[in-house]
Computed example of a mutant assay.
Amino acid sequence: MKTDLVEIFQTIRASVQPYATRGYTVHENSETGYDLYSEKNIQYDDIKVTERFFVGLYINGSEVELKLNSKDFAFKNQALISFGDDKLGLKISELDEAKLKEIETLVEILHTHFKENEWI
């Protein structure tokens, strides 16, 4: 069980970083923040969208926050926290293999949603 925030952040970031080679662009890559966006130009509800938040990971106080894009997508059967601005996710202060697998599954589900909608 990991409890050090930097270690938790780095472990989760290592599982999210491969998505940067799957069509996403890194917007923040620091010691306390890492996020990915899709930069595919699309027309959405008569609005041209040039970038779309995918996933973000941030050290905030005594927790690591994992934020997932929830616009037009509902995560079912998950106890996720609302961060506002169409972002849901988790606040993590301890990380074990089961929690890491849950995080990896959530990100993969979201990635599949992005692919199905041709947002990447």
Rank of each mutant, 00 (worst) to 15 (best):
S70R: 08
L66K: 07
S62V: 15
L66E: 03
K67G: 03
G84I: 05
F83I: 06
G89T: 07
I81L: 05
S62E: 15
F73A: 02
V64F: 10
K71Y: 07
I59T: 10
A79H: 10
K87V: 10
L80Y: 00
K71E: 11
D72V: 07
G89R: 02
S82A: 15
L88E: 02
I81K: 00
L68V: 00
K87Y: 08
K87R: 15
Q78V: 07
I81A: 00
D85W: 11
F75M: 07
L66C: 12
L88N: 05
A79L: 14
D72K: 14
S82I: 13
L68R: 03
L80W: 05
S70K: 05
L88T: 00
K87W: 05
A74P: 07
F75G: 02
G84Q: 09
F75D: 02
E65G: 02
I59P: 04
D86L: 05
N69C: 14
N69Y: 03
K76T: 13
K67I: 06
F75C: 06
V64K: 01
N77S: 15
L80T: 04
Q78L: 10
D85K: 15
A79P: 01
K76I: 14
N69F: 02
L80P: 07
N69V: 09
V64P: 10
E63K: 08
F75T: 02
L90T: 09
E63H: 10
L90C: 13
K71N: 03
L68Q: 01
E63L: 07
S70Q: 07
V64Q: 01
I81T: 07
A74K: 14
A79G: 12
D85C: 11
F73H: 12
F83G: 01
D86H: 14
K67Y: 03
L66Q: 00
L88Q: 08
